[in-house]
Amino acid sequence: MTNSMSNTEFVTNLVESKFKVLSTEVLDKYQVSFEVKKEDVHSLLSLLKTSGWIQLSYLSAVDWPNDNEFELVYIVFNWDKAVHIQIRCRLDRETASMNSILPIFPGCKYYEREAHEFFGIKFPGNPDHEKQLILEEWDDIPPLRKDFDPRAYSDRKFSKMEYKNDFVNKNGEVSKQDARTKRYDDIDKLRTGGKK
């Protein structure tokens, strides 16, 4: 049995010896994150799959509007060594497209459909990636992009409850509670002859 610390070192050595890694981050002793180039993702994932990271846990995207880029995150999981590996890569935001990893991890099918639906990233190679999954009949820009305003969309699309202004603003008036406290204080003062 190896301990967990050597697990992360093993992973870092394995990946950095064979690929050009833009940045490596050891988050804790169970998670490592590598940022690689877009072209390296497929070969890196194949390598990890043959080394024991056989399960694709998650695939999603992060929007960076200031850099004009999307960041794709693949998380793979190993059932023998307790390390999650995140593979990150950056895509151009205007022509966001990434070859599907369907031949490596067939389970990515629905994650890619979801990413296409919520971010508008295309996945050539996945035959279903343009089918609707969660948002049915969506009629606006993909909703998890940062320039989408959910509140404006909700106000436009869904009718809101209308409330009447039938309350009275009592700010500035003496509250009944304060008046009562003052009256009791006065009574106490009278009872004790003005002495505390």
């Binding site: 948002l135 989408f148 959910p150 909700s154 106000d155 869904f158």
Partner: peptide, 12 residues
């Protein structure tokens, strides 16, 4: 109330 996916008034 401000979500893009959730309706607001069911009785509509």
């Amino acid at each position: 109330h401000d979500s893009h996916a959730v309706i607001n008034q069911l009785n509509k």
